[in-house]
Amino acid sequence: MTGVDLKPSDEFEFKPGHGKVLLLACGALAREIVDLIERNRWSAFDLQCLPAKWHNTPEKIVPALRAKIAAARGRYQSIFVLYGDCGTGGALDRLLAEEGVERIAGPHCYAFFSGNVEFETHADDDVTAFFLTDYLARHFDKLIWQGLGLDRHPELLPDYFGNYTKIVFLAQTRNEDLTRQAEDAAKRLGLGFEYRFTGYGDLESDLAQRAEA
């Protein structure tokens, strides 16, 4: 199963054993979560992922998570959500407070892949940065170029990216092909390029704590 890669429109379920903790996650994290579960032989988790493309329509995220949480009640000892706010304007955190469900700390996956503390140390330098992860580099065309309509309306490029100066590629794996794709994305957007290897950051440490609980 390692190497799973979802299309941005895919939902995904992964039940390697008899999980007592349900992970509800963005599909953009599926590959990394499955890799961590398999590499560490964690048996505590079942995983359900919502479509990654919903970052372009974040109003869909909270209702879908509400339904997933309701369906899981009584079937798991706990539920853990692997999303940042992700454009929900605080609605996700309000839902989770109502439901008594925790989520990973951090405003978005760029922060928890970097490590939230480390991400903050770069905050001033990155104020005009557009971030890519492994997933976003792999699916740049579908999620960003086509998702924002730049394939049909390239004249919109300054409207979307005129205030950015660089792409920062936060790499979860050391992959030369993905690095080249991220560099190409920067060229297409007319931006500078910076590479940072993050690994899985707080995603790994947070899951490790829950696997051992």
Rank of each mutant, 00 (worst) to 15 (best):
G84M: 00
G190W: 05
G199P: 15
Y195L: 13
F80E: 11
L29Q: 14
R210A: 04
L136H: 09
D5S: 14
A44H: 07
L170D: 01
G19M: 07
G149A: 04
L189K: 02
A211R: 05
G17F: 14
C26M: 04
I37A: 04
Y200L: 15
D10F: 04
P8A: 00
G201P: 05
V117R: 01
R94M: 11
Q48S: 14
F140E: 08
I61A: 07
Q146M: 15
D126E: 13
L95V: 07
P158H: 14
E204N: 02
R188F: 00
F80Q: 06
E59G: 10
R138M: 12
I61K: 11
R210N: 03
F119P: 00
R41W: 11
D206H: 02
V81N: 04
L65D: 00
L156T: 07
E155N: 06
A129E: 05
K20I: 10
D5K: 12
E155Q: 11
P16M: 07
K7G: 03
Q181D: 08
V168E: 02
Y135M: 04
H153T: 13
R188Y: 06
D124M: 12
T198N: 11
S9L: 01
W54T: 00
V81C: 09
T88G: 08
C26T: 02
D184K: 07
Y135H: 07
E204F: 03
I33L: 08
I167E: 00
T165D: 13
R66I: 03
N116M: 03
A70F: 04
L95S: 01
A123M: 14
I37F: 13
E194R: 15
T173G: 06
S43P: 10
T128A: 12
L170C: 04
K142D: 06
L136V: 01
A208T: 11
G149T: 14
A25T: 15
G87D: 02
L47K: 04
E183M: 11
R152A: 06
F169P: 11
E212Q: 14
Q181W: 11
Y83M: 11
L170I: 02
T173L: 04
A97W: 02
G100A: 13
E183I: 08
G100Q: 03
D125S: 15
N40I: 12
L148P: 00
L47I: 03
M1Y: 06
V34H: 07
G190K: 07
R180F: 09
D124W: 12
L150D: 05
L191C: 09
F112P: 00
A211W: 10
N40M: 11
R196D: 13
G190E: 15
A129S: 15
F197N: 09
F113P: 03
K187S: 13
E155T: 06
D125Q: 15
T133F: 09
H139P: 14
D35R: 06
A123L: 13
L82G: 08
E11F: 15
E38I: 12
R41I: 08
C109W: 01
V101R: 00
A211P: 15
F131V: 00
K166Q: 14
T121R: 02
P63R: 10
L150Q: 06
Y200H: 11
Y76R: 00
L156A: 13
V117P: 01
R31L: 09
W145S: 06
F140K: 14
R210Y: 06
D85G: 02
P58I: 11
D124H: 05
E13R: 09
D159G: 07
L22P: 12
